[in-house]
């Protein structure tokens, strides 16, 4: 059995992991704050176009006079929703499929792992682009596509662990007593495998943020959601912008935020991985 308190304390003790958790916390606060308050309406024209940072517009305005800071804050929301949904969705599916494949390794497992191999071999970004181009541009669709491509990674890890777990005596015993897969999954496999899941979820979330921003940048995001990728796209499309100073308040803030978000999730994932590694060594 895993010692929960020990594991989370161990991830927290790792300075890089802690920095990551702080980063995610800060992003969450910003996203929550943007729900009830932004300096201006992010969609409204609230000033002269391309006005430099000032007291009323802390990060200036974009090409049509919308407040950049407000847009960066609401962009936080899109990225975090994507990260959360893809992280949870992909790990949940990966867990169930991976456990099933490890528990029934002969027929079902072979079929499921073939599917995992195919999904992991298919070129990721071109496939995302293809699906996003065909599907209606909605955030839910983007998230669904990202989950579809992210679950196999979790499934592979979970399957490997389940394969070794099912040889253990207490699982054997549970099988002989006639308990079904669902019961064993819930009562015996889940507690053993659960600690692996946060690390997987955080990793999937980091990739999802990059992918969502990339899609927004390619113009394949949800046009009703203001994402960081769309902000950068809009800025680069603005004629002659690079020759003004406006890039420093229009392109830089969303770019820095994306990098900060990815960095936070990567560091948090590193902290969780380290905690698991230390537990294994003990």
């Amino acid at each position: 059995m895993h010692d929960w308190r020990e594991l989370s304390a161990s991830a927290w003790r790792e300075p890089m992991g802690r920095a990551g958790f702080f980063g995610i916390g800060a992003l969450t606060l910003l996203a929550l704050a943007s729900l009830c308050w932004t300096p201006h309406d992010p969609d409204a024209i609230s000033g002269a176009s391309l006005s430099p940072p000032s007291l009323s517009h802390l990060l200036g305005t974009n090409g049509i006079g919308q407040d950049v800071l407000s847009q960066v804050l609401t962009g936080c929301r899109v990225s975090l929703i994507t990260a959360l949904a893809v992280g949870l969705g992909a790990t949940a599916i990966g867990f169930v499929v991976g456990a099933a494949a490890g528990y029934y390794p002969r027929r079902l497992g072979v079929v499921l792992m073939r599917l995992v191999d195919v999904l992991m071999t298919i070129p990721r970004l071109p496939f995302i682009i293809l699906l996003a181009a065909f599907l209606p541009p909605r955030l839910a669709n983007v998230i669904a596509v990202l989950i579809f491509l992210a679950w196999p990674q979790a499934a592979r890890t979970i399957r490997a662990q389940t394969l070794s777990l099912r040889e253990r005596d207490y699982i054997r015993f549970a099988q002989f007593s006639g308990l079904g897969f669902v019961h064993i999954l819930r009562r015996h496999l889940l507690p053993e495998l659960f600690p692996l899941l946060p690390a997987k979820a955080v990793g999937a979330a980091a990739q999802a943020i990059v992918a969502e921003v990339g899609l927004g940048f390619l113009g394949l995001g949800d046009p009703t959601q203001r994402s960081w990728g769309m902000m950068v796209r809009g800025a680069l499309d603005y004629p002659g912008l690079l020759w003004t100073d406006a890039w420093s308040w229009w392109i830089l803030p969303p770019s820095v935020m994306v990098s900060f978000a990815v960095l936070s999730f990567t560091l948090a994932g590193y902290g969780l991985d380290e905690a698991l590694r230390r537990e294994r060594e003990r």
Binding site: G214, L242, I251, L252, S255, V258, V262, L263, T266
Partner: peptide, 20 residues
């Protein structure tokens, strides 16, 4: 770690502004 966190198009955009 910092380079890895910046998506390639972000890095590219910054280099474009600075060096072009």
């Amino acid at each position: 770690v910092l380079l890895e966190s910046a998506p390639p198009f972000v890095l590219g955009g910054l280099l474009l502004v600075l060096l072009s």
